[in-house]
Amino acid sequence: MRIGIVYDLIRWEERALAEAAERLGHEVRLIQVTRDPLWLGYGNGLGDLDFVFQRCVSYYRAMASAMILEEEGVPVVNSYQVIAGTEDKLYTTLKLAKAGLPVPKTAVALSKEASLKAAEKLGYPLVVKPIYGSWGRMIARAMNEENLLEILEFREHMQSPHFKVHYLQEYVEKPGRDIRACYVWGEVPAAIYRVSERWKTNTALGAEAVAANLPDEIKELVRRAGDLVGGGVLGVDLVEKNGEPLILEINGIPQFKNVVRATGYDLAGKIIESTVSMFKR
């Protein structure tokens, strides 16, 4: 097959996908979206590709290029719709909660006053998150009302308007770890525990990646969550509350270097094989 990799910066994952695709006998075209303009409605010479992986580190570049390529008739993995949905924590949590999948108790408040009302029900500590964002950035924990008011004051003065959408969530006391499960077209081929003494367990913040052999019920939960947001290739993050899994978020352009390092599993190869078989149907 002819496979494109759409990217802005080359990280470990983009190289791993390109190498795996070549190793499996496919033709690979690397498309750096910052290099040339993308024309609207005139085609960009990519119509011969069977599909492309969307791998931009920048959300806005990912959205713009996914939309243009899809309109050109090139299937994008993940699709514009999946990337848009999973980038938005509000949308993802809403979809999961509505479908009855377990998520931490969450409210969205659009003012300081409404945030305080939400906090009365959630109790303290609680966590305030940006609805867009990654790597644990700008996530804050309020231990009491005074903390919450300080956090809200910072957020209300941020330039980006989305910081005025306050996503407030119960604080879950973790067992020193959370879970990153890899969803690939309905399968859960690899997972890690992200182990840290800090309350934020992102590997971007120094958590240690340890191979995880997830029980079937958690794998099933990951499958259902991935299917619900539109499938493809996803990173699903979960936390255990008193032994019961809750879904925290879903990543639409997942990094997987740490999964591969901890598990030794050829995830790039799996992503290529599964995606190729999807588009052969």
Binding site: S58, Y59, Y132, S134, R137
Partner: peptide
């Protein structure tokens, strides 16, 4: 020079 990490960077 590489770009600074931007607010919309991530997974």
């Amino acid at each position: 020079e590489a770009e600074e990490i931007a607010e919309d960077w991530g997974e």
